[in-house]
């Protein structure tokens, strides 16, 4: 039982928190702009590497580099929108989607060029896990879960308590009606990009802290992020967050040795769980698990 918690549930929660932050941003962008943003994973990698640059240059811890990573990723998202997406906003959804694919490739190529293709890390060294009775938890995992919770709370307050957040939800409901009521659509779109970029950059640093950095790290979790967003009902940020948590847990628990000594699913196939969930959701419940969030 404790093995389940220590080695499967907690890591699942950590992975889920990272998926959740990425999926929330995807869902926001989709809700406000009706746009499946395929460069989202590469923005995540960009945030992770921006933190790495700060760690190397300033000798700070990656936790302290999070604000720098977020601040560096926001202009990239805004520039991609101004240079590419804004011009294509009135074209077919497929055109916009492919343009984001191209944007993602550009960001990834930039990371390969500057940082090289090899795996790297923030060089945090080894910290012994916290032992709470029989529970063993990595300190970094605790911070990641807490950080994601704080980010979710901040986003919730933004969306429900602020004028700008209400305008974002109004745009997601009905962009034409939002215009009639006097909403500056371009401004709301910029704010949406900024929020999504901050969330995904933090997710990138968390992923880098939890595992390793490679230029392809974000693209590797992009499909899981989409699966989480769709599982929660795409366009609904809270659904995306819950979808992310569920998916992260499902991936980790899929290799739990429930029957006999062998894992349910070989760990190598873990990422396949996201695809299975994506396909099953689209077939069985395309509107997502949580309607009306």
């Amino acid at each position: 039982m404790l093995e389940l918690v220590n080695f499967y549930l907690l890591p699942g929660l950590v992975l889920g928190a990272i998926y959740a932050m990425s999926a929330t941003g995807l869902s926001l962008v989709y809700g406000v702009m009706r746009f499946a943003h395929f460069a989202h994973g590469d923005l995540m990698a960009f945030g992770a590497y921006a933190a790495l640059a700060a760690v190397d240059a300033l000798g700070i811890s990656p936790w302290a580099a999070i604000p720098i990573a977020a601040a560096a990723t926001v202009p990239v998202a805004l520039a991609a929108d101004a240079l590419f997406y804004a011009r294509l906003r009135r074209s077919l959804p497929a055109v916009l989607l492919i343009s984001s694919f191209g944007t993602g490739l550009m960001i990834r190529a930039g990371l390969y060029f500057v940082f090289g293709p090899t795996q790297t890390g923030y060089g945090m060294g080894f910290t012994p896990p916290l032992v709470l009775g029989a529970l063993r938890i990595q300190v970094r995992h605790l911070w990641i879960i807490a950080g994601a919770a704080v980010a979710a709370l901040a986003l919730h307050l933004l969306l429900t308590r602020s004028r700008a957040g209400r305008a974002m939800r109004a745009m997601a409901d009905d962009p034409d009606l939002a215009r009639i009521t006097g909403v500056d659509v371009a401004q709301v779109i910029r704010l949406t990009w900024a929020v999504a970029a901050v969330l995904v950059a933090i997710a990138g640093v968390f992923l880098g802290i939890d595992t390793q950095l490679t230029p392809g790290m974000g693209f590797n979790v992009l499909l899981a992020s989409f699966a989480a967003a769709i599982l929660g009902g795409i366009g609904r940020p809270w659904g995306g967050a819950l979808g992310g948590l569920l998916l992260g847990m499902a991936e980790e628990l899929s290799s739990f040795p429930l029957i006999g000594g062998a894992p349910l699913l070989e760990p190598a196939y873990k990422t396949g769980v996201a695809f299975a969930v994506l396909v099953l959701t689209l077939i069985l419940r395309p509107q997502g698990l949580f309607r009306g969030m």
Binding site: R163, R169, A170, A172, G182, V183
Partner: peptide, 15 residues
């Protein structure tokens, strides 16, 4: 705006 409350809809009118 269907997902906004009555109050929030009215607040949007004064955006």
């Amino acid at each position: 705006f269907p997902s906004l409350t009555v109050e929030e809809n009215l607040a949007m009118g004064a955006y």
